[in-house]
Design a protein around this nucleic acid. Structure first.
Lengths: 237, 237
DNA sequence: CAGTGGTCTAGACCACAAC
DNA sequence: TTGTGGTCTAGACCACTGC
């Protein structure tokens, strides 16, 4: 049995996207939705809070839930999403070139991932080509305690799919940092930089369900093709 | 009376930050917290979910809530935070130079903010100096329907403080977009770019409690001083 | 005033982890 | 089996909006 509040959420998203309730109009009240979906009010509220969190509605006390018209053109780089998922969302023609797969013992990286003493770290370097241009250089480091084998086919397709479906691991959360750096020699060699003198770097620490750090990665983007969209709410002090 | 779940949240944050429960240990269970704070379990869960959302803990079904050790050095650029609030959080010596305050009728901007027909738009340009260097160029546009007066002193101090405290408006949410651009002539003149050939631009649409768009702004950063930190959780499809 | 969303309660049943 | 967090319920009271 699927979770009730999620099926309600999905249903409401679908209806908002198909303009059942156009932007800046009100959703049915929580009480109405309660009878409509034959459930309790707290369950409805869970679904509505998800909608609000994701920028679909804004709730106003005493009035109701207003449908927002943002979020229509914004594809999320936020959250934890694999390149394959992203490319599918955007309907872009994209290509992945596996540049390097190796096992390393680099001190700087090893310290971050802290594998058990005798074990090692996978290094994967991939180039992402979008519409024929080499735009992104992905450098991934995996703790081999969790990912024992890595084939070229897996790296070509989707490492996340492999980790979640085949290895049965659950990716839980990540710390991300976005900074701008000067291109390294490697960046210049692998990417079509076209004279750009900066790259945007997304550095991620990715953790599993048991809070163990299993991946560190750097996603290095040509600056003119980088875009990050966020929906934020004001938090009072 | 303050909201119970928020006072519990604040208390738990304080205790986590003062190492009452060190990183990677477990918080007391929800049932224990229920008796400790003399409240219901759902209220405890609201507080814990807030902690999880903000990266303080990770909840594991069947085990408990693990304290994370991230979030200790990461100052949030995310969310809606004014420059004054940010500077205070970081204990940085900072200075604001008000470069321009004017009323404009630029078509491109007017279309975005869509003020009522006879009204106008405030344009404010400010330079942010951090440790003696001109690092950020803030260009703000306010719908004069909501902000009738803007003094130089207000712009020097904090426009948000003025809007929320003196005008009694409530800032609710914002759409943010981060892109990298080539510096404009204005960027070159106002900032200490030191040869950098890119600026990081945060473009924001800011909305009030009644969902009306009242501000558009561009915060233009020298790339080497820009940093964005995010905490994300994996969402299954 | 009636209707809205926001908070809080006390209890139930479930899925999962650890022993 | 026990204890954990995840979902769901039915009801209560409150603060706010709009008439």
């Amino acid at each position: 049995m699927k979770k009730k509040y999620l099926t309600i959420y999905d249903d409401l998203v679908k209806k908002i996207q198909s303009d059942v309730w156009p932007a800046s109009t009100l959703l049915p009240s929580e009480n109405e939705l309660t009878t409509e979906y034959d459930t309790s009010r707290e369950t409805i509220r869970k679904a509505l809070n998800l909608l609000a969190q994701n920028g679909y509605i804004h709730k106003i006390r005493g009035k109701g839930s207003v449908v927002l018209d943002i979020n229509k053109f914004s594809f999320p780089v936020s959250g934890i999403v694999s390149f394959k998922e992203l490319a599918q969302q955007m309907n872009q023609t994209s290509e992945t070139i596996v540049e390097e797969i190796s096992v390393i013992e680099d001190k700087a990286v090893t310290d971050k991932l802290q594998p058990s003493e005798q074990s090692q770290i996978w290094k994967v370097v991939r180039i992402r080509e979008i519409s024929g241009e080499k735009i992104i250089l992905d450098k991934d480091f995996f703790n081999a305690d969790y990912v024992p084998i890595l084939s070229k086919e897996t790296c070509q397709n989707s490492i996340y799919e492999y980790i979640e479906n085949d290895l049965g691991l659950t990716i839980a959360y990540a710390e991300k940092e976005i900074v701008v750096e000067e291109p390294t020699q490697e960046d210049r060699e692998c990417l079509d930089l076209e004279g750009h003198s900066n790259v945007v770097v997304i550095k991620s620490h990715v953790y599993l369900e048991d809070t163990s750090l299993f991946q560190y990665s750097e996603s290095r983007h040509r600056p003119d093709k980088f875009r990050f969209v966020d929906f934020a709410r004001r938090v009072k002090n």
